[in-house]
């Protein structure tokens, strides 16, 4: 269990984290959500004992500031930036951190195989791709089998393919019963991993909800572009407006504003009016102010 009690971290007069109290139950997965500067990464750094703060944080009853080594012994950390020793071999690096975490001697090779890096054991860390490095970070975090995994924007620097592979890996980590605390900007990540989401802004938790509730609670909207035959364009605009959509014409299609999670509804509306939708593009998700 992780317990934050009245944690405040100030940089000068600016409170990056302001009086944060929070309990994360064993095997729960909690996401910290918020814009840049909301204080998410500062919370993670406080949890790892990298920053000094007021208040207290305990990880499985070990106080982070007074029993730092024991508290960090409960945690596996996946950083945002892949800051490893690039001149070391993959297995060599994993063995080094395995020694520091007192992991069984065979565990480094086993974990590298588990995260799909068995063919890259001798490759220099600097020569690994971004996705591979992040999988390496997960392997390093699992060394010593810590009960808590802490991740700071784990998929932020990855392309779509690498992101999907890593999310699958992290879903397996969650299924193994780890307690997870992570920061994220991505809804997909939150939906896959989080049981609970804390929406942070200016160092404070503004909202707590489930992953499924998040888009609605944040008032998110999506924009989709629908392409229809040129002869049906005017009719399509009328049908969608009559159905209550905010819609505008755009070249050979229409751009429709829909509630998050409701992107198929304008397609159904047009189909019901016998208008064929030729193509469909999701343009953006827009967070309400």
């Amino acid at each position: 269990m992780i317990n934050f009690s009245h944690v405040t971290k100030k940089f000068g007069d600016y409170a990056a984290v302001a009086d944060l109290s929070l309990t994360v139950e064993p095997q729960a997965a909690v996401a910290l959500w918020g814009p840049n500067g909301a204080g998410k990464t500062t919370v993670i750094k406080c949890l790892l004992g990298l920053l000094k703060y007021k208040g207290s944080i305990a990880v499985n009853d070990f106080d982070v500031q007074k029993q730092g080594r024991q508290a960090r012994g409960q945690i596996g950390y996946v950083p945002q930036a892949q800051s490893f020793y690039n001149d070391m071999g993959t297995l060599e690096l994993t063995r080094y951190f395995g020694q520091l975490k007192r992991a069984p001697a065979q565990q480094p090779a086993e974990l590298l195989e588990q995260v799909g890096l068995a063919e890259h054991l001798d490759k220099k860390v600097g020569a690994l791709s971004g996705g591979m490095k992040q999988r390496l970070a997960v392997a390093l975090a699992l060394l010593g089998d810590p009960p808590v995994i802490v991740m700071d924007e784990p998929t932020s620097n990855l392309d779509a393919g690498a992101r999907d592979a890593l999310l699958q890996l992290l879903a397996n980590v969650k299924a193994a019963g780890k307690t997870i605390v992570f920061t994220s900007h991505r809804l997909e990540e939150i939906e896959t991993l989080a049981d609970r989401v804390l929406v942070m802004d200016r160092g404070q938790v503004r909202l707590t909800c489930t992953a499924a509730e998040l888009p609605k609670r944040l008032g998110w909207r999506s924009q989709v572009k629908l392409r229809v035959p040129a002869a049906s364009l005017d009719t399509a605009l009328t049908v969608l407006q009559d159905d209550g959509f905010t819609v505008r014409r755009n070249g050979v299609g229409v751009i429709v504003d829909v509630a998050h999670g409701d992107k198929a509804r304008p397609i159904h509306a047009l189909s019901a009016a016998d208008i064929c939708v030729v193509d469909f593009v999701h343009l953006s998700d827009v967070e309400a102010e």
Binding site: L48, L50, Q70, P79, A81, S83, Y85, L100, K101, R102
Partner: peptide, 14 residues
């Protein structure tokens, strides 16, 4: 400078 110090200090070391 390389960001490895923070990662090292996030391990169970003092």
């Amino acid at each position: 400078e390389h960001g490895t110090l923070a990662y090292l200090l996030a391990q169970p070391v003092t």
